[in-house]
Simulated scan of single mutants.
Amino acid sequence: MTRRPAYFEPVGTDRYLPTEHAGGAWRDDEIHFSPLGGLITHAIDQHRAGRHDPDQHPDQHPDQHDDGKHLGRISFDILGRLGTDECGIRVETIRPGRTIELVEATASIGGRAAVLARAWFVASGDTATVAGGQPAPLPAPDQAARHPMTQHWGGGFVTSLDVRATAPAQPGRTTAWVRTGTDLVAGERVSPHAGFIALVDTANGIAVRQSPARWMFPNLDLTLHLHRVPSGEWTGLDTTVTFGQEGLGLTSTVLHDASGPVGRAEQLLTVRQL
C-alpha cells in the first residue's frame, strides 16, 4: 500500500521534521504556519490524553479521553521565522481543573522558541435546549467552484490544498472550503480538531486584498474560539481582510464544517510594501 504524504515526520519524542508539503507561501526556506498550528494542537492532545496511556484504545483519537472537556479556544503567537529545521514541542498543563483547563505549548525550531500556544478546554454538557445565535451555514462544498490559491502563492503547503470558493472572490473577501489529502503527521492518527485547525491559517491567503508580489501582510498570531467541536474533512472559511492606515491589518473568519458554523478565528497582520 502506498503511504499518503504528510506534512511532518516524527523523528523522536516530541520532535518532528517538516516535509516539502509544509513549505511556506512567503519564502522557500520557511514552513507554512497552518500545518504547524495543527501539529501543536496534536501535541497538546497527546499531552492531555497521556502519550503512553495503556488504557487508550488504538482506534481512539488522542483527544477522545474521558475527562469530559472540549477545546474552546486556542491561540498561537508566532514569535519569529518558521524555518525548515527540526521542530520540538514542549507542553504543560498550567491550570488543571474538572470544569476548565489551560494548557500551554512552546514549539521550538532550530533550538529557538518559534510559537507559543495556549488552549482552554471546557467541560461539556447538554445545552441543546438553549443553543442559538449561530450564523447561516455556507453552501455545501459540492456546490462550490475550484479556487486554486497558486495564482497568488507558491510553496508546498498551498500546492497540497483542494480549495473551493462558494462565490467569486473579491479583494479582501472570500467564502471557501479547504481540504487536503496530506496527513498531518506520518503514521499518527490526529483528532478532528487538530486536522481542522491545520487548515485555518489558510484564511490569510485565501482573501487576498493586495498582491503579495507588491505587499507583505504576514500574520503575527492566530486565535480560534469554538462553540462546537468541528468534524469532517472540510474546513469552511468565511473570511474578511481589513487593512488599516498605520501598518496594521486583521483577517477575520467565521469557521464552518460541513454541518454548519463552529466558531471564529482572528489574525493580526503586519502590512508593509515590498
Results as ranks from 00 to 15, higher is better:
S231F: 13
G205K: 05
W234K: 07
I197Q: 05
L255C: 04
H225M: 12
S259G: 06
V262C: 03
G195K: 10
P218M: 00
P218G: 07
P230D: 02
V208M: 09
T240G: 03
V262R: 08
L226F: 04
H227I: 04
P218K: 04
L248Y: 01
G249S: 10
A186V: 03
T182Q: 01
A194K: 06
S252H: 14
L222E: 04
G263R: 06
H227C: 09
G249H: 01
N219C: 06
G205F: 02
H225Q: 13
R189A: 15
G247W: 06
L226H: 02
I197V: 11
T251A: 10
H225K: 11
S191K: 06
A258Y: 06
V190A: 11
V254W: 00
V229C: 10
H193A: 08
G205C: 04
T240Y: 11
G247K: 08
N204G: 10
T242Q: 15
L224W: 02
V241P: 04
D221G: 11
R214D: 13
F196N: 05
M216Y: 09
T242M: 15
H193W: 09
T240I: 14
L248D: 00
P261N: 10
L220D: 08
R209M: 15
A203N: 02
L222N: 04
D201T: 01
N204S: 13
A258P: 00
R214M: 12
S252L: 14
H227K: 05
H227R: 06
P218E: 02
S252M: 14
L250S: 10
L220G: 12
R264Y: 14
A213L: 14
E246P: 02
A198S: 13
E233T: 14
